[in-house]
Design a protein around this nucleic acid. Structure first.
Lengths: 154, 154
DNA sequence: AAAACAAAGGTCAGGAAAGGTCAGAAATGA
DNA sequence: TCATTTCTGACCTTTCCTGACCTTTGTTTT
């Protein structure tokens, strides 16, 4: 049996079939499906997460809206998981080098972008605010963030 | 859909597209959009701030006016330096929003990429490993890294 | 010259209109 | 049954917008 959440999900997915990005009004959508507005949040939280390949941006107040955008990961939903998994909670410089090579080999990253990433992250980590013993953690965080952004681009 | 503030903002931006500096009369503009004069101030305060790269000068009394001047960035030879500078050692979420808006306006970043960055960084900062009191520092680090990578390509 | 008036723009509290959060009830399925 | 998922309602935060009142500047009157 498909629940109301499933129906709302389907409705939004259909819209996103045609466009990369849609804008909705929570109140209006809730009225359309005769449910509580917070139901919309539930659907977004459970079915349109970053892991699912979607981005949500919203604004409150008069003229408020919720914008849903498909990220590039959407085409290969596993990319996000793969990146998170391969980077892990900590990563050494060698680990980063190996990962970047692999991503380039698998065409998930362009050569020049990987080089740029390497430069920027290494440079950033020279900042003395990063204590030596935590560098692997910070490297992981920086690398993950930058990769998610780069690979999420169209 | 889009609020009155959005419309007024758009109108002013269009004018600033052609000239770097414009002079308006609050009363007249308010009449044009059929709103309270203070609405104009609201738009200026929320959308034409210094962080956004605008300078506002005004004069009261008879023959009073409001002058809006827009600062440029993209012609600067050291854009990356400017970016580092504006990110600084710490940056609030609002500061990040303003900077992203500005980069988009200056065509140094695509709008989609700015959403992506926004989402990824906010998502990353939700990770409990980042203590609340250090979020502004971490936000700065993540934002700087990601922006240098994104804006440093080509 | 001083006072009064007129014509700008500035400030701020507060109401209205969005969306966000979260505990817990209700439904569902194993 | 009992764990999980769905759903709602009460309450919160953010954004928009107005109106009453204030300050500054220029002009006119006395």
């Amino acid at each position: 049996m498909s629940s109301l959440s499933d129906l709302i999900e389907q409705y939004l997915r259909d819209l996103l079939e045609k466009r990369d990005s849609i804008e909705i009004q929570r109140r209006q959508l809730a009225q359309m499906f005769r449910c509580a507005p917070s139901q919309i949040n539930y659907v977004l939280e459970t079915r349109f997460t970053m892991e699912d390949g979607y981005l949500i941006v919203s604004r409150r107040g008069g003229g408020g809206y919720i914008k849903i955008t498909r990220a590039h990961w959407h085409e290969d939903p596993d990319v996000l998981g793969k990146i998170k998994e391969s980077v892990g909670n900590e990563i050494t410089q060698e680990g980063m080098a190996a990962l970047l090579r692999r991503l380039v080999r698998e065409s998930m990253l362009e050569e020049k972008d990987s080089w740029l990433l390497w430069q920027v992250i290494n440079h950033e980590l020279e900042n003395p605010v990063f204590p030596e013993e935590k560098k692997d953690k910070h490297r992981a965080i920086l690398l993950r963030t930058a990769l998610l952004v780069l690979c999420g681009r169209k």
